[in-house]
Every structure is written in structure tokens, then in C-alpha cells.
Nucleic acid binder design. Sequence first.
DNA 1: CTGAAAGCGCTTACAG
DNA 2: CTGAAAGCGCTTACAG
Lengths: 350, 350
Amino acid sequence: MSEDDRPRQSVGIAEVAALAGVSTATVSRALSNPEKLRAPTLARVADAVRRTGYTPNVAARSLRGRRTMVVLVVVPDIGNPFFADVLQGIDDELSRHGYGLLIGNLARVRAKEAEILEIVQAGQVDGVILLNGRVPEDRGRTLTELGIPLVAICEAIPGAAFPQVEVRNREAAQAAVQHLVSLGHRRIAYLAGPDGNILERDRRAGFCAGLAHAGIAVSAASFLAGDFSFRAGTDAAAAFLAMADRPTALFAANDEMAIGFLKAVRDAGLRIPGDVSIVGFDGIAFADYVDPVLTTFRQPRHALGVTGAGLLVKVMNGTPVAPEEACQRLPVELLVRASSGPPRGGRQPP
Amino acid sequence: MSEDDRPRQSVGIAEVAALAGVSTATVSRALSNPEKLRAPTLARVADAVRRTGYTPNVAARSLRGRRTMVVLVVVPDIGNPFFADVLQGIDDELSRHGYGLLIGNLARVRAKEAEILEIVQAGQVDGVILLNGRVPEDRGRTLTELGIPLVAICEAIPGAAFPQVEVRNREAAQAAVQHLVSLGHRRIAYLAGPDGNILERDRRAGFCAGLAHAGIAVSAASFLAGDFSFRAGTDAAAAFLAMADRPTALFAANDEMAIGFLKAVRDAGLRIPGDVSIVGFDGIAFADYVDPVLTTFRQPRHALGVTGAGLLVKVMNGTPVAPEEACQRLPVELLVRASSGPPRGGRQPP
DNA sequence: CTGAAAGCGCTTACAG
DNA sequence: CTGAAAGCGCTTACAG
């Protein structure tokens, strides 16, 4: 049957083979398994490839080779700069192994999980890295059922059977409380992340553990609702300012909220850290440029990406993953800056 | 010849065809050109597709159909949240037309342009959107030679023969100067972007035009070097503070630098806007949370993405693009906030 | 170490 | 409106 007449790919493997005086099989091997060829043959092919400017067609290679050399990264919100460094780490490690990277942005829309399933079902990728804290699903079907190599990073998925890499959220949150207590604070508020989020759960648990450890009744602490956004921080500030017996310190479950809160209470005339100390979480770039500079925890973002990608490569290659590797928890670093300090002695000025 | 024994795709088009009692051609048509089928046939196929959970293999479809339904977006730096909204706009428009999106992050590394060329040469995408202000090239070969549909947005590429969408950088920068002049400023500094960058060139030109328009000698203005980073802002602040006859206002070529500058001069004890007014460019989210809130220009980021993607779809479809569409320049909006105000009358305090 | 040939899973021009 | 069959451009098990 005749074919359509759209322009075809400029150079095909056949042309390279003809120019080099070898079969297409040999050209293919020269590109994928050069060690299987004799040096002179390899050289002739390499020369022909260079002269023709040949690049193998990706679709054909994927179809025939049954692997795409592409990994899907599921991100809850590409707009959050936090993920940029993680993605960079993933990309660095993946490209070392010859893999490309497809970004699936959920944009915080649950319905987009169906698209993730489709991409995988369509055979578009060899593995998936989840940064979104849950296994995507669509009408009862879940990603795990599809039998594709999987890894979760940043936001852990409790009980999952695949490798995971996260940071010590609980320990860090506890350390935040310890830091504030050591400065003399006893009335400490917690500005929460969205309900059900694993980071929120772990950081809240660490916060409570920190209080308990310091002999402070959790019932005496204030819990402010939030959702990780700047806006949640300013909203929480309004609630905070209206409180009768205001805490002298606040630990926010992330930096955006800490910054929103900081801005709003400062605008209201409170001094930081005199009237209220603030501690955030994440160590986003912006935290260095607020006034006062935010005390926070620096996450090993790049390392999270590299580690997670490395694990996925192992799974995709069928390399066994040691149990201690399969559930890693990286440390975070407390950066003590100007936003936290001793509470003003005695009462607050009118 | 026998094949390898890796697990194959769960459901193929043949199974669906068998279940529906039609040929594979009909299944294919049902999915791509449903209007060519009779309703009952379509219904039978649709039912079979649903029951089998069939999703067409992307590699096979691309190989045979000679189109991938994927667009490559070349981003200079994925870590810059500015691009997140633009990408969202692109994605919104592209997905309306059935296209997926592959992100090529240059990470400000020139050598990565070679990867862009490879992706295109490998037939991996049907079109390219450039956000990086130049046509990627590698050892003499440029992307334009590859004959792939192309569009540039955000950062224009002068003299290019493909459609472009940018904002009125020159006019906006001029308006920034007008704003400052109207407040009473006469000594105004410009904090520049990286050399050779088109945004830098246009904004600088607008700055100079604004001065000229106000009857201020350009030679009397101060030009501080920068590169669009927070750090460049703090570095420029050091230079600014050391100046003998300090300007009373500064226009930064982007918000990051404006914020870095703001933070550093504030730490040095200057009051804003009393001692120095500051105007940025872009309207990043963070600009709302610095103290004082930054006067800046809000870019129509989402619209930039939507417009650019829409143009690319036209080019890919062979739809003619009207000349006035082919070179669009969207307006930006000046947000007057607390970082700009009248200069303090008389001398500055010691 | 190298080649001939099958076949990955689809789409589409042709025929009916 | 639907089907039979070619073929997209590669890779790989088999044979030599």
C-alpha cells in the first residue's frame, strides 16, 4: 500500500549502514553495545554516524526495545520552587544513566492522577518517581497495579512496598521546639499544613513530642490551621493576633506560611523575635531575604532527588535494593537566624 | 526469530478488536476519527475499550503516525518560579489540543542546547516553544535548520522568522521611570540583567528612554551590574551604598534583584522609600511579602503561555498565522506599592 | 564478530 | 462504512 507523503526523518539507520558498509544490525550495536564490535568496524560506523548526523528515532527504539529510557516524575505543584532543586537532583542522576525525564504536574488537582495512569499504561515511561505523597489512582485502578517500577521521595507513602526517601521530619520538628524552649519559650504555637498530608502529620507529631519532652502540656499549645501557602500564613496571623494569651513563639510547618505569618504580624506592629519568634521548615531561597531572616531547616533537596533517582534506576534494572536502602530518611539542618530569639522578659508593651 | 521474554503490554489493539468483533483498523479509527464510524460500531468498540482498559501504545502510535503529540518547552531555568505560571498556561492550551509537554531545562548551561537538538532530531516532539531567548545550537547546527515548528515566548529572538510573544518590556521600563519621576525623583539608578539578554536590553532601553523623556541626562544615571539573581541585588546594594552622591531611586530589571537590593540596603539602615525607592519587574509571588511590599510590574504569565502554545498549535497544523499574530507584545501592569514614594526632601540624615 | 530477518503495536491508503 | 495488509524505524535472538 502506498504511504502518505509527509517528510520523513532526514537520516535513517539504513543510510548510515550503507555509508559504513555494514548491516543495520551493526549500526544499532555500535550505538547500544559498542563493546560487541571490533574496533575497526566501530570506527567505520562512528565515522558514518558523524558524517550523516544520524540520531536514532526514539519511537522506533522504544517500540522495538520495549523500553523508553524515560522516567515520569509526579510533582504536586511545579510552581513550588522547592521542587526545582529536587528535580535537578533527579535529572542529574537519571541522565548519568541515560534516562530522560517527563514531568507530571498534578497542580494540586486530584483528577490529574488519571493522566498519570494513562502515561504509564501507554508505555511512555520505564519508571515513576512520586513526590506527591500518594499513589495516583483513577476509578479504582492504582498505579501500583500497573507493575511499573516506583519510588517515592520527599513525601513518604506509609505502608508502600516500594523504596522511599524522605527527611527526618519528626525529629526536625522536635528540634524546632527544643530550639525555642532553649531560648526560654514555653507558649509555642504550631502553624499546620493541610489535613492528611504526611509532612503535616510528621511535623505535628514532632512538635508535640518536643513539647512533651520539655514538660509542656500539649493542651496548652495553640494549633493554627494552614495549607502550606503564603496566604495561610497571613490568615493564621490574624487568628494569632486575636488570641488572648498569645504564644511567644511559632513553628510553621513550612517556610511559605512562616513568611506570610512573619509579614502579617510585623505589619501589625509586633517585633520579631521580641514579641514572637518564628521558625519555618524547608529553607527556600526566599527565607534568606525576609526581614528578619528566617530560622528554618534546610532540606537536602538535591540529595533527595539523586538518592531517589538512584533507587529507581536499581529497581528498573532489577538490581536488588537492600532493606536499609529501601526506606531512607535523610537529615535536615537547623539554620538559626534572626527570626528566633529569647522572648521579651515580663509582659508585652501595650 | 524468537523474541525476548519481557512482559508485554497488558492489552493490545488486537484484543480489543477481537472483543468488539471488528478489525484493528476500526478500533484505531474509533479512537482517532470516531466520526468516520457508524454509531453502533463505535459503541461496540467503545465498550470493548472500556472493558479491556485499553490504552494505545505511544511509541507505536508515534512511529506509525509520524507525530508524537508532544511539544518541547525549552526553559532557561526551571528553578525560577516565574516560569511555573507560563508553563501552566502552555500546558492548559496544549492539553486542550491533545498535546503533551516535555520540559527541556537548560539550567543556564549553554552546553545543554545540544540535548535539545538531539530530542528534536530523534523525532521525539512535534514542535518547540523557546523561553530562553535564543535558538539552541550545537556545533554549527541550529534548531531552525531542523525544520520543526517553533515559537518563542517571554524572551524574544530578534529577527527570527517564527512567531513570538513577549511583553512590552521597553514601554514598561519607561513607565517605571515615569512613575519615579512623577514622585519627584531625578537621580535614578538602573540595576541591570545579564549582558546580552534581550530582556535586559529592552528594559535598559526603556529606562534610558524614560530618563530622556523626563529631560534627565542618561550620563547622570547610575548603572549597576546584575544577572537577575537575589545575590546580584545584594552585591549591587554594596556598590550603591558606597556611592558618593546616591540616587534616590532604583529600577531593577527583575524582582529577585530588587528584593536582594531591598534587603541589603535596609540592613544597612536605609529607609525605603524615604532614602531610596525601589521598583522591580515581573510580579513574583514573593514581591508581596517583602517589607515594604515591592512596586513592580505584573506580567501576564499564564496568558503568555496560552498565547504562545496556541500559535505553535497553528504552526504545527499548518494553519496560517496572521502577521499581527506572529509577533505579539502583551501589556504589563504597574503595581504601585510601598517600596516607591517621594524622595525625602533635602539632605539625608547622617 | 557480523548479517539476515522478524517483529515491536500501531495507522492509513487502498479496495470494496 | 469497514477490512486486509503494508510499513513506520529500529533491536535482537538466531545463525554462521
